[in-house]
Simulated scan of single mutants.
Amino acid sequence: MGLHSRQAERVDLALRPGVDAYAFVCMDDFSISPAAEPPLDDSQIACLRDAMVPYAVDWRRRQMLFTLHASRDFAAGHAFLYQAQREQAQQGVLVSFDALDALFPASLPPTGVTFLFSVGRCGSTLAADLLGAVGIPSASEPGVYEQLVAGHRRSWLNRRDRARVIRATTRALSAFVGEPLVVKLRAQCTIVAREIAVATQGRCAMILRALEPWAMSTYRAFGQWPDNRPDELAWRYANAVRVFDVLTRAGRRPQLVWYEDMLRDPATLLQAVGAQAPVSAPQQQALAATYQRDSQEGLSIGRAGSSARMHADVLQEFKHRWARQAPHRLLHRYGIADRL
């Protein structure tokens, strides 16, 4: 199937002022205009494929925006992939959903992708940095997977389109970043974890953290937002455990990584993502250096920027809510209860 000009178009990008640093990505983050260059033919679009990084989708127009980057390490020094795209992208390619299968066919990777899910505030950004220290490619919080969450309750969305977008996003990241690829996902993506895992047949891993330190860290980073009420926090952790069960029953049981174990030894993380090669002496030094710095340094959610404190009465309310909402049967089935 060929790619007609109306199905894939090179465009110029300009980041709009005032884009929320932590908001889900969307097409409107950029002002998009046709590129000054002549329209690209099929072969030219295909040649751009290895420089294309997925950024966002427009579900109604059935289009996907890829940003163009010459360097594979353009996101180095950024905690999240979408930050680097927003800062650096000047050109991109708009691709119709109907052209995605031709541009990123099933014959392309991934052959070895791991999706790293988490409940949030449990070291997933550190995990991505640790993987980088030993040379394992990772993509930290690609925005398209987050848009699946935003569209989760839209009944008009075509399931076939969603699966096509998931596969194209994963293949594009594998082609650009390299393999074996680890995709570190935002905590909200647990909502669509099964959909992602089934569409890609990828390996899954999940990071959890002891309950009370997790709640206090979440509160410290974000304060009492509407989503950080004690009852909401309890629901969020319980939901992560249920997602673990859902993935297991779908035949994609996640490798479980505990934050506390990862802090002591990166081996638990490396095993979870299927790393086989022994860690060299230079990599050991790189790992030690990674542990010494804040993976979210410079962000408001980093150590220096976190200021809110979870008072004793709020913590007590959270514990009360957790006792009522906890999926006790699943906690014991998967050996999670003993670690909380």
Rank of each mutant, 00 (worst) to 15 (best):
G2H: 13
H4D: 13
S5W: 11
S5P: 15
E9P: 03
R16C: 00
R16Q: 01
P17M: 13
G18W: 03
V19T: 12
D20T: 11
A21Y: 07
V25G: 07
C26R: 15
M27W: 04
M27H: 02
S33V: 10
A35C: 15
A36I: 11
P38M: 09
D41K: 05
I45A: 11
L48D: 13
L48S: 09
L48P: 12
D50P: 06
V53L: 09
Y55F: 15
V57F: 12
D58N: 10
D58I: 00
D58F: 01
Q63V: 10
L65A: 13
F66N: 06
L68W: 08
R72P: 02
D73S: 14
D73Q: 13
A75G: 07
G77I: 07
H78I: 02
R86M: 10
R86I: 03
Q90G: 15
L94Q: 03
F97G: 11
P109Q: 01
G123E: 07
L126N: 05
A127V: 09
L131P: 00
A133D: 01
A133S: 11
V134H: 01
G135D: 07
A139H: 05
S140E: 07
S140K: 04
S140D: 02
E141G: 05
V144Y: 03
Q147N: 05
Q147F: 11
G151M: 05
R153I: 08
W156Y: 14
N158T: 00
R160A: 07
D161A: 10
R162Q: 15
R162W: 07
A163R: 15
R164E: 10
R164M: 12
I166M: 00
I166K: 00
R167D: 00
T169S: 13
G178S: 09
P180N: 08
V183F: 07
T190M: 05
I191F: 01
I196D: 06
V198L: 10
R203F: 04
C204Y: 07
C204D: 05
A205F: 03
P213T: 01
M216Y: 02
S217T: 15
T218M: 14
R220D: 02
G223M: 03
P226F: 14
R229P: 00
L233C: 04
L233V: 01
A234N: 08
A234P: 06
A238L: 06
V241F: 03
R242M: 15
R249T: 09
R252G: 08
R252Y: 13
R252E: 12
P254Y: 00
D261S: 13
D261A: 12
A267V: 13
T268W: 03
T268Q: 06
T268P: 08
L269W: 09
G274S: 09
A275K: 11
A277W: 05
V279P: 05
V279S: 03
A281P: 05
Q283H: 09
A286D: 07
L287Y: 05
L287R: 08
Q292D: 15
R293L: 08
Q296E: 14
G298A: 06
G298H: 01
S300D: 11
I301D: 02
A308L: 04
A308S: 13
A308P: 03
A312E: 02
D313H: 08
L315Q: 11
L315S: 11
Q316Y: 04
K319N: 08
H320K: 10
H320F: 07
R321I: 04
Q325R: 13
P327I: 04
P327V: 01
L331Y: 12
G335R: 04
I336K: 03
A337P: 04
